[in-house]
């Protein structure tokens, strides 16, 4: 996709983001201000970039999985497993490199397992990944022995709360991961093949696409993204919290993909749009915290905003509105109620 095409693709998401930011600014006027504290940038926009990192990272992998007409419910649990693995390694006194490799390896393994269930055994993705979603937290708890496994390794903590060139490491992580994955899928043929399998698996197979390997690959990428997210949240609180790390984040990631306009029925996808979607969600989350509403309202406000966003982006809304207008006009002209349109087919 060329520059203008890309811009046109993500324009609805950018407009939504702008609207959300404007809305939050109404309730919290200094929301958009960014300052410099020491050598790092501070301010709500920076918080959004940082706090949105786990969902943004998950959304990258989730976009690819959803593009193949799948879904990955297990990413939150994979975060817990990978965070626990890394914390375990650091706790054992192994080097940070080993810990990170262990976490990334665990993420790949989890993705391979999901991909195996989906691509080889042919289990429906929602069921296949539900298995790890449920069991994964148990695995993480076994690793941490049920406690919050705390550590004091400064390098690991840097992954979660450090800053490079003023920008928090988690923000770098999702931005770079998004660029790398985005380039890989668009500069190779991976993106085309993923979309092709998502639109029509059978026809793609008959055109020679190796759908098994492709599905394994996307679930493994999703596992890898979850591993990065797990490392970040674990480093951020200097502890692996098997019960709560990544809890329900799979749903936010799916939501980010949906807000990004990728159809849950597979096919055309845009990682950039999903990432903007993740930032929209995080802006809402941060905005709610800053606006100072009583906590009982948090979920309701978020739900209403998400509903509004999805309604405004719905292609049907335009049709429905046009249809209502036309119907009104016709009714005015004939002075009679319009005749109901019958659905065709048996």
């Amino acid at each position: 996709m060329n520059g203008t095409g890309l811009l046109r693709r993500v324009a609805p998401q950018l407009l939504t983001l702008a609207a959300v930011l404007a809305l939050v600014t109404v309730f919290f006027p200094s929301f958009l201000s960014v300052g410099l504290s020491g050598d790092r940038l501070v301010g709500s926009p920076i918080d959004v970039l940082k706090r949105g990192a786990p969902v943004a990272l998950l959304a990258i992998g989730m976009t690819l999985v959803i593009a193949t007409r799948g879904i990955d419910l297990s990413v939150g649990a994979i975060m817990a497993i990978c965070g626990a693995s890394a914390a375990f390694a650091v706790d054992q006194g192994w080097s940070l490199g080993v810990a990170v490799l262990l976490a990334l390896g665990a993420g790949l393994l989890c993705g391979l397992w999901n991909g195996f269930l989906v691509a080889v055994l042919g289990i429906q993705p929602i069921v296949a990944t539900l298995i790890l979603m449920v069991a994964g937290r148990g695995i993480a708890q076994l690793i941490t022995e049920g406690q919050i496994l705390t550590f004091s390794d400064a390098g690991f903590a840097f992954l979660g709360s450090g800053a490079v060139l003023g920008l928090p490491v988690p923000a770098w992580a999702w931005i770079l991961a998004g660029i790398v994955v985005g380039l890989v899928v668009r500069r190779t043929a991976l993106g085309l093949l993923i979309e092709s399998v998502g639109v029509n698996l059978r026809a793609s197979r008959l055109a020679g696409v190796n759908s098994t390997v492709l599905l394994l690959t996307v679930y493994m990428i999703s596992g890898l993204c979850a591993a990065l997210a797990g490392l970040i949240v674990t480093g951020d609180i200097r502890g692996a919290d098997a019960n709560n790390a990544g809890l329900w984040l799979e749903l936010d990631a799916i939501l980010a993909v949906a807000i990004g306009g990728t159809s849950l029925l597979g096919g055309r996808f845009s990682i950039l749009a999903s990432l903007i979607g993740a930032m929209i969600i995080q802006s809402i989350n941060t905005g709610i915290l800053l606006a100072g509403f009583p906590p009982e309202f948090n979920l309701v406000i978020k739900a209403i905003l998400v509903l509004l966003i999805l309604m405004l982006q719905s292609p049907r809304l335009g049709d429905v509105a046009a249809g209502l207008l036309a119907r009104r006009r016709r009714a005015d002209e004939t002075g009679a109620a319009p005749r109901p349109v019958q659905e065709a087919g048996r």
Binding site: R51, V233, D236, N243, N244, A245, L289, P294, P295
Partner: peptide, 13 residues
């Protein structure tokens, strides 16, 4: 006054 869900991560956020 906001909820941190009793978790370390939300407490920090």
């Amino acid at each position: 006054s906001q909820t941190g869900d009793f978790t370390r991560a939300q407490g920090k956020t």
